[in-house]
Nucleic acid binder design. Structure first.
Lengths: 254, 254
DNA sequence: AACAGGGTTCTATAATATAGAACCATTTTA
DNA sequence: TAAAATGGTTCTATATTATAGAACCCTGTT
């Protein structure tokens, strides 16, 4: 299996675009032909094609060519695919559609998790949150999913020494949390079993970037009467697949 | 004279790249073929070519395609060509080489002009400035070159009601300055005839952006003994040409 | 006026992009 | 489990088109 077929005309277009630099943002047809040893007529056709699609511009006065603004548009799309929110948004919608529960995307800020995106359940009884809403990381599924995959030194810093007990289920102290996070790391996802709020259950799964670091998590949250112990595994599976897909798109490689 | 020749293969490559959006940053070969009504084999060759040059990436696990990082590089080149400092830098060097006087690039900030780039004369007696140096706009060639091309309402705001007299040549009051700016606008460049500093003369010429607004100016400054009345016209001509070239590269159209 | 430089248009054909088919791998379906 | 479907990759003959050479047009210089 060699390098595969390459279309000469397209390669030539790319090589022409690569002739332009910060030092030489504008070039003449003849200059391009000299550099690439291209026939003038051939190069002209290529430049005209690029020009037609906004990937090249030609100054009407000087007739010099320069790279076109549509390259900014294409470059911006590359940038946006690297932005986690953009990457996760369609996936969050998909998970919400399949579970009909509220799906969040969250990141860690200090000892708290912050929701940076969400897709809400269509059911009347559901968790009310706003983007920007914060909760302590240690008692939420989404927060724990991030904490579990942090380096140990970082973990300790992100869990307060004194925990607030929000419910009877809230984990008791820092030591218990850190033991629990070991389990989460093994399972690959975290469950908030009414630890943050009575009557609410949540599953959270971690998202990794291209360097292998955990950078966010995605979660499904809903009333305990709907988020039953029987239903949780299915949701957890779906969520893990979805988190993996987001991670993959961020350049994560196992 | 129609639209000129367009190379089909290259058009197809561009159309493939344009299939990718923020909502759908990744696509399958089959999806691309369906959208563009392309033969699978043809599209494969095109994608492989783009891939080889970094304009496309393919995820080894899922085999989905996505836009490649080299589009960021090309987009960055477009951005940089729109950045005034980058654009002006080689031209400033060129002017300095031809005049062997200190050349500045300056922008307006409030009522002051700020130097944002420079190229210094090689002669031992020369104007000492640093990037970031500020002077009142109304008594410098570079400042006046900008003021003169501002809308009238803006002009008034950029000239203090009370002027400092730096030298015997400093213009006397706001009214005199605004009259003088009318002349500058007609001439197309401004001269500081020892108004800011005794023994120093300076010529300034305006730079316009793609919207037609004056955004900066470029200047040649030197000791009066070298910047003689006889020499000024030559310097002014060179400077105006250079300012026009910078403007043109910023997308300015007369 | 002639020439040079530089972009644009035109056209015949050499070259190659293309499409169809086969192949390979993985996933889905019965 | 086997067969079918899906989806990417490779191969090849040829239809199509990208290509190169030449002519044309415009501007600037000698």
């Amino acid at each position: 299996m060699g390098d595969g077929v390459r279309i000469q005309a397209i390669e030539r277009a790319i090589m022409i675009m690569n002739c332009f630099t910060d030092e030489e943002p504008e070039l003449r047809l003849q200059e391009i032909c000299d550099r690439l040893d291209l026939n003038k007529s051939t190069a002209h056709g290529i430049l005209n094609t690029l020009k037609h699609h906004g990937l090249m511009e030609q100054d009407p006065e000087t007739q010099k060519y320069r790279l076109g603004l549509n390259l900014l548009v294409l470059g911006g799309k590359v940038l946006n695919r690297l932005d986690i929110r953009t990457v996760a948004s369609p996936i969050i919608k998909d998970v919400c559609g399949k579970t009909d529960e509220t799906v969040h995307l969250g990141i860690l800020d200090g000892t708290e998790v912050v929701y940076i995106d969400k897709q809400e359940s269509s059911q009347s009884m559901r968790l009310f949150t706003a983007i920007g809403t914060r909760y302590p990381a240690y008692c939420t599924g989404i927060g724990k999913a991030i904490l579990a995959f942090l380096p140990i030194e970082d973990q300790a810093k992100r869990i307060p020494d004194q925990l607030n007990r929000f419910t009877a289920n809230t984990l008791k102290d820092k030591r218990e949390v850190m033991e629990h996070l070991k389990l989460v790391k093994q399972t690959g996802y975290a469950i908030d079993d009414e630890e943050n709020m009575e009557g609410l259950r949540c599953v959270g799964a971690p998202i990794f970037n291209h360097t292998g670091k955990v950078v966010a998590a995605v979660s499904v949250a809903g009333p305990s009467i709907r988020m039953t112990k029987e239903r949780l595994p299915m949701i957890a599976d779906l969520l893990c697949e979805s988190a993996e897909e987001i991670s993959r798109r961020l350049g994560y490689k196992k």
